[in-house]
Write a protein that binds this DNA or RNA. Structure first.
Length: 283
DNA sequence: CGTCCACGTCTAC
DNA sequence: TAGACCTGGACGG
């Protein structure tokens, strides 16, 4: 379940289910996972989460000494998620496990069938990843508009949108939905699209209130990189998560382009499928 | 049974 | 810029 919204929703999920709970003992890793052991052990600790783009960090805090807090930073690959279950109901593919002290004994698991996900003990946010499109909007916007000379922006806009140095949190369904909202041809050069955003940004003949009104009614590409992911979070489910039929139905209804009947698909230069509106390539 | 496809990085030639 | 890394679901024969 893993583009920015799913990572953010996972963090919120952890904070909700772990609120007021205590965990204990060692952190267990499955034998098959190639990710590192998590050498943290405490008789009584709490878990909280924070997310940034396509990463989420769990903070493990011993109740005895909050200065001994440790953390684990996760990336979800194509299939990562957190689940909270009874100990005797451990999910398949639960590769990292945190056990509660409180009864009934439960377990918070990092579940990842395909094992493309990764974690790092006491790691920091990946330094090459840019500001979060959801939680650091102004920084995100500035990071893009100040670096338009980067060769990343020589590429088609649909490919640039997957670059996590600039669009931390955007993934394959979000790029399709965002471009669709503005009817932007996916293979337009990114710099061309973004220079127009920058120019629009500086257009200052109008009053402030008029500018705000225009911004609200005609959000530009970078605003949509923020607001479209937030729409997914506001659906209240888990976003892209086929496992929950009700939430997945709501997500499916929300999609306007990706996976939608009648939309066209192509492979981008990295072999990833881009969904877009029929006719938009020619317009 | 087989082939294709999937929400993403990684590293090796 | 290809593969590599994986499981599993959908669909075809």
């Amino acid at each position: 379940m893993p583009e920015g919204p799913e990572l953010r929703l996972s963090g919120l999920f952890v904070n909700r289910v772990c609120d007021g709970l205590h965990f204990t003992g060692k952190v267990e890793k499955s034998a098959i996972s190639k990710n590192p052991e998590v050498p943290f052990c405490s008789p009584k600790y709490t878990i909280s989460a924070v997310s940034r783009g396509k990463e989420v960090k769990l903070i493990l805090t011993p109740t005895s000494d909050k200065n001994d807090a440790a953390s684990v930073v996760f990336r979800f690959g194509m299939s990562g998620s957190f689940k909270f279950t009874a100990v005797d109901n451990l999910p398949k593919h639960a590769h990292l496990r945190f056990y509660t002290k409180d009864s009934p004994k439960r377990v918070l698991s990092f579940v990842d069938p395909r094992r493309f996900g990764s974690w790092e003990f006491n790691g920091s946010w990946q330094p090459e990843r840019g500001p979060c499109v959801m939680t650091e909007y102004e920084k995100f916007r500035e990071n893009v508009l100040k670096n338009l000379s980067d060769k990343v922006f020589d590429k088609p806009i649909c490919e640039a949108l997957l670059n996590q140095k600039y669009f931390n949190g955007i993934g394959n369904y979000l790029r399709a939905e965002i471009l669709y909202r503005l009817h932007i041809p996916p293979f337009m050069p990114a710099r061309e699209v973004l220079e127009a955003v920058k120019h629009q940004n500086q257009n200052s003949d109008l009053s402030l209130s008029k500018k705000i009104k225009i911004k609200k009614e005609n959000p530009d590409l970078l605003q949509l990189c923020h607001s479209v992911p937030l729409e997914v979070i506001d659906l209240g489910g888990k976003g892209y998560d086929p496992e929950n039929a009700v939430d997945y139905a709501a997500f499916g209804t929300w999609l306007q382009c990706y996976f939608v009947t009648g939309m066209k698909t192509m492979k981008d230069s990295n072999g990833r499928t881009i969904w877009f509106q029929v006719g938009v390539l020619m317009s």
